[in-house]
Amino acid sequence: MENATEDAEKEKSTHIHFRGGVNMGIGSFNLILSMLPSRVLRLMEFLGFSGDRELGLSQLREGAASNSLRSILSTLTLLMFHLYMSVILGTGEGNLPEAEALLKPYAEKFPNVSTAEPY
């Protein structure tokens, strides 16, 4: 019975990591496609690809909230979008409250991390 329990636990862990990877992949793909210029996006839609920014962001949020190997990558992608890409591409202002909420668990987990405050 112990072996069956260990196998089930290992399968559950593998599924969590797989799901986190899928969330990151689908989210990043949709987010990147949604930021392409309209001419390129029309060509991509003709080829069968579509970029849905809200789907991409929701998938990345789900991946960032999970406890998978790729959750930090989903978090970093969201931070890059909210703090850099949205401002550079002119799609809006950066979303600072969401960026702070994304960083809060890592600040609690790693309290001695370097900060921007002077010594």
Rank of each mutant, 00 (worst) to 15 (best):
M1H: 09
E2L: 09
A4N: 11
A4V: 08
A8N: 10
A8I: 07
E9V: 07
E11F: 14
K12L: 15
S13K: 08
T14Y: 10
T14H: 13
H15N: 14
I16N: 07
H17I: 01
H17D: 14
H17L: 02
F18D: 14
F18C: 10
R19Q: 15
R19I: 12
G20E: 01
N23E: 09
N23S: 13
M24R: 07
M24H: 12
G25C: 11
I26G: 04
G27V: 01
S28T: 13
F29V: 08
N30E: 13
N30H: 15
L31A: 06
I32P: 04
L33I: 09
S34E: 02
M35R: 08
M35Y: 10
L36F: 12
P37N: 12
P37A: 08
S38Q: 13
S38W: 11
S38D: 15
V40E: 14
V40Q: 11
V40H: 11
R42L: 13
L43K: 06
M44E: 12
M44P: 06
M44Y: 12
E45Q: 11
E45N: 13
E45S: 12
F46P: 03
G48Q: 05
G48S: 05
F49I: 04
G51R: 00
G51Y: 02
G51M: 03
D52I: 03
D52N: 13
R53D: 06
L57S: 06
L57H: 03
S58Y: 02
S58W: 02
S58I: 02
Q59F: 12
L60R: 01
L60G: 04
R61Q: 15
E62Q: 12
E62Y: 02
E62V: 04
G63L: 00
A64I: 00
A64G: 04
S66K: 00
S66I: 00
S66V: 00
S68T: 01
S68H: 00
L69K: 06
R70D: 10
R70N: 14
L73W: 06
L73S: 12
L73K: 07
T75I: 01
T75G: 00
T75F: 00
L76V: 04
T77I: 03
L78V: 03
L78W: 00
L78M: 02
M80R: 09
F81G: 03
H82T: 04
H82V: 03
H82M: 03
M85H: 08
I88E: 13
L89Q: 09
G90W: 01
G90N: 07
G92K: 01
N95C: 11
E98I: 03
A99G: 07
A99M: 07
A99Q: 06
A99K: 04
E100I: 05
A101L: 08
K104S: 15
P105A: 02
Y106R: 04
Y106H: 07
F110P: 05
F110I: 11
N112Y: 14
T115F: 02
A116M: 15
E117I: 10
P118Y: 04
Y119R: 06
